[in-house]
Design a protein around this nucleic acid. Structure first.
Lengths: 107, 107
DNA sequence: ACAATCCATAGCCGAATGGCTATGGATTCA
DNA sequence: TGAATCCATAGCCATTCGGCTATGGATTGT
């Protein structure tokens, strides 16, 4: 059953990609070069990971001259929220807050 | 950055494993044999996947005679919620800022 | 104009992944 | 007791994955 959530789950399954996403979410839009400086892997590897994150809509790119600025798109986490909502009986409070935030941001 | 969330993300990255978890969460505790009947893969493959889910604490096994009953442990999703909540906070900040800005502009 | 920088793509490689069959121990049934 | 069932493990194989270097187009700086 390949779903929409599949790309997102797979994209976030790798620690390097999660770190890239985390950094973009925390520190805001930045270039591939800036990301590479802190990623601990080569620039082509960073580019490849960003490509996978982009397919999952977790990041967005904004080319500007010879540079490309990437930024996080946390709304792309929504499919995960949807999927987990089926099993979320336990942490109901935390979850409700998160979900309503996402819906607000989606508008 | 290998975190606690890593096992959970990796475990859920595979569609077959997600389907197993979904079925256990939806229909409750059941044997490997019952799971195999609906998984579309062989029994050893199901067992292997269950092993990975178990390492991530997403399922629990209860041997009984020659059978083994598995059940879902949705609490194991908590690390994912926690991870995502980091970005919920991030969103709320920005959202709150935007909201207050809009109010100011409205005056 | 030339040199340097940024980044994406291509191509390679070893390790991990997800599937299978074969097997065998443990249990249950006839 | 003997046959059948349940399930985990082992071992195999093809594919995917995550890293690298090499390269080259585009842009920017000198």
């Amino acid at each position: 059953m390949p779903t929409v959530a599949d790309d997102v789950f797979k994209a976030l399954a790798d620690p390097t990609r999660r770190a890239l996403f985390e950094r973009l979410a925390r520190d805001g839009e930045q270039t591939v070069h800036a990301l590479t400086d802190h990623a601990g892997v080569s620039q082509p590897t960073v580019s490849k990971h960003l490509g996978i994150l982009k397919i999952a809509n977790l990041v967005r790119d904004r080319p500007e001259g010879r540079e490309t600025y990437y930024s996080a798109q946390p709304q792309a986490l929504a499919p995960l929220i949807d999927w987990m909502s089926l099993y979320a009986d336990f942490w109901r409070e935390r979850f409700d807050r998160l979900e309503s935030l996402l819906k607000k941001m989606d508008q």
